[in-house]
């Protein structure tokens, strides 16, 4: 019985300590915790300056709001969503991946891919053996030597010319 009592007492003490620790942490979120969320937000006025480093009073107020929401136990996603609901998607560092906004993510890779395909096809076209001109004999000779030797040979040839 004593054992049980001791166990219960110990559990209670540990639980109390744990709760206390959690409260101390949650009670006043640190600047770093606030900034971790603020870094992902942009206020509509200070364009191009993330909220964590923006020096204006308005941004300071936003940071305090984030601190309060963190203290209330809100998660990062909930806080971000709160600002989106209040001020629109522009407060996020990049557009949400939905609807029309997909264009920002999809167009560049599509264009780059198209460019790469075009380049590759052109290169293939240009380097087809049948297009090698008649004077390619000399080329073939040069091609068969390694790049390194080819380079040194060219330096030497150049030097001879300059002598």
């Amino acid at each position: 019985m004593k054992k049980y009592l001791l166990g219960i007492a110990l559990t209670l003490v540990l639980a109390a300590l744990w709760t206390g620790a959690v409260l101390a942490q949650d009670g006043t979120p640190t600047d770093d915790e606030v900034n971790a969320v603020a870094h992902k937000l942009y206020c509509p006025v200070c364009e191009s300056t993330p909220l964590d480093v923006c020096p204006t009073d308005a941004c300071r107020d936003w940071r305090e709001l984030i601190r309060t929401m963190l203290a209330d136990g809100k998660t990062e996603d909930e806080i971000l969503q709160h600002f989106v609901d209040q001020y629109g998607a522009r407060v996020l560092a990049e557009p949400p991946k939905q609807g029309f906004y997909w264009l920002i993510y999809l167009l560049p890779p599509a264009v780059i891919l198209a460019g790469a395909v075009m380049l590759f096809r052109s290169l293939k076209e240009w380097t087809r053996p049948k297009t090698v001109p008649a004077d390619s004999g000399g080329e073939q000779g040069a091609a068969s030597s390694p790049a390194k030797d080819d380079y040194i040979a060219r330096v030497e040839e150049e030097l001879k010319k300059q002598k």
Partner: peptide, 13 residues
Amino acid sequence: LFTGQKVTVGPPF
């Protein structure tokens, strides 16, 4: 222009 909503395209993108 198309949605009436301005968005931020920031460093992560």
